[in-house]
Design a protein around this nucleic acid. Structure first.
Lengths: 330, 330
DNA sequence: TTGAAAGCGCTAACAG
DNA sequence: CTGTTAGCGCTTTCAA
């Protein structure tokens, strides 16, 4: 049996309440010799607090839950680091639970688990919730926020980039360099985020007074393989002079496939990623990308959850991560 | 206030114990109409179990803790997936806590947190513990196991590859291809794992009746940058015809730097990684690597912790992940 | 400066 | 088939 507060109380010849108060730092009005004695005995006996008991009585928890999509997104690590950085300074611990991206049953399971633990807040990473899970979240009265994915249900709070702007800026960046035939690979069309990015892209063309073509858009699910497939589809003789990857991985898929086809990047084909993760630096040529503020999303998410202000959606900024995979058309 | 079992009991006109039993699935000897009624009411009232209370009374938890090194290791994801796969089928949830790799204070904090939660088991990823933390772990009486890092303290259980063999096989593979001047970049010498890999490498040379040189070994801390630095140090005119990276990232650092220096890979220089993570596929040329069984480490780790057999150290196997970064010397 | 006592929400004997 | 009762380990009034 683990040693309890009561055991300490007995050996220290004080009451359990005294031990409790001292161990939780309320030493203000205790004789300092009592404090010292109790602490010493606690250590000697190898006392470890029982968090479950404490949480039960105080009715609050110091755990933040992060529900992560299982999908191979390589940016979650960065977000989680942001989350940890703020959690640490607030003496919160972090519990990470995996769920499918859109498998509602798995999602339900994950959400239920963390609600039953009475966590202090819930951060949902790249998760798109169904009706029922939305209800479940709401009914828990636990503060929650979605990260890295915008949602079209207006009353669900999220922190993400403005995906319309991302699409717009990506296309605009290439258009301004002089490209006019620009592909878009790996976009998950039919999702809110995917559609927004596409509309941003289209808008940039419209503003430039140029036309885009349907066959320049190759949808997918943000993956490396989607980039590969798109590029294979367009082939070596493509009219495109620049391609936007819907994610870093998709862009790298495009780039590698282009290289495999014997094309040169960026001279024959410019490739622009979206995300700006560490992968950009380790591929050759280094990937130029729209860099999202993932770390910041994590930080801000926690801050919003623990400050008892109202939780509303915000956008984080993004910028261009310079690389060597984009140039003006030759 | 959240709905409790007592609330349900009242509206259903039964006792709390009845509700408890039904909700925990002990419906065997209950009138099925009672069961149905109770379940219906529970759902209607939006009941969510209070896990803290349940764990307090049953004195056991369904949480596995994973303590992860903050160091930029890119294989932890694979291990964690392995952990989750087994956890899921055993209805265990997983809590991930970050700690420094060798910052004993951060480690202590992390270990303490999970012990205080009374978790079911502790998995430590790429963590090398100090004396005090070892004691702390032991004194908790919670089963624990180290993953992906061998330990020289014989009584601490771990699951990892045999690092001596890895070093040996890596060198042997290149020697058998005909290389005789082989570098080793990014090894963290002074650590148990780093030293073992080096000894394996040396042994392979000895067996082949060949000599290695001190300047062929460039130590570091497994990072990309260490690979870059090592290759910069050797320079374009190096006598080396093949290089082993201590990790995939280190190998990629070597490879990219060699390319930047105008060398060709693998013709002028073969590069072999250690780890075999997904990065190998997205770099060009694709990285050939010693592939460790990370997913399996995670799976086996959980199985060992939850089977109440004795917990002892084991090795997982490794193999060669074929790529295009290694060839016979030209 | 300290203690007594109540109770958080749940489970599990033991009783009927 | 169901209820009564006790108690997990902790915190926190209230009282001294």
């Amino acid at each position: 049996m683990r040693v309890t507060i009561k055991d300490i109380a007995e050996t220290a010849k004080v009451s359990p309440s005294t031990v409790s108060r001292i161990l939780t730092g309320q030493t203000d009005n205790y004789a300092s010799k009592t404090v010292k004695r109790v602490c010493r005995i606690a250590v000697q006996m190898g006392y470890q607090k029982n968090t479950a008991a404490a949480e039960l009585v105080t009715q609050k928890s110091n755990v933040l839950a992060v529900i992560v999509s299982e999908t191979k997104t390589n940016f979650s690590e960065e977000i989680i680091q942001g989350i940890h950085s703020v959690a640490l300074t607030n003496r919160l611990s972090v519990m990470i639970v995996y769920a499918g991206e859109s498998d509602q049953a798995l999602q339900h399971q994950a959400i239920k688990t963390v609600i039953e633990r009475g966590v202090r807040g819930i951060l949902l990473l790249a998760i798109v919730p169904g009706e029922e899970n939305t209800r479940l979240l709401r009914s828990s009265h636990i503060p929650f926020i979605f990260l890295a994915t915008a949602l079209d249900k207006k009353d669900l709070p999220f922190i993400s980039s403005n995906d319309f702007d991302i699409g717009y800026q990506a296309a605009d960046y290439l258009l301004k360099l002089g490209h006019v035939k620009i592909g878009f690979a790996g976009l998950n069309l039919g999702t809110y985020v995917g559609d927004l990015r596409l509309r941003g892209y289209q808008r940039a063309f419209q503003k430039a007074g140029l036309d885009w073509r349907k066959e320049w858009i190759q949808s997918g699910r943000w993956t490396y393989q989607d980039g590969v497939n798109a590029m294979k589809g367009w082939g070596r003789a493509t009219e495109l002079t620049a391609i936007i990857g819907a994610s870093d991985l998709a862009a790298i898929g495009v780039m590698n496939t282009a290289l495999d086809l014997g094309m040169t990047v960026p001279d024959q084909l410019s490739v622009l990623g979206i995300d700006g993760t560490s992968l950009c630096h380790i591929v050759r040529p280094e990937l130029t990308a729209i860099r999202q503020a993932f770390y910041e999303m994590g930080r801000r998410g926690v801050q919003i959850l623990i400050n008892h202000t109202s939780i509303k959606s915000t956008f984080t900024s993004f910028d261009i991560l310079p690389g060597s995979s984009v140039t003006a058309p030759q």
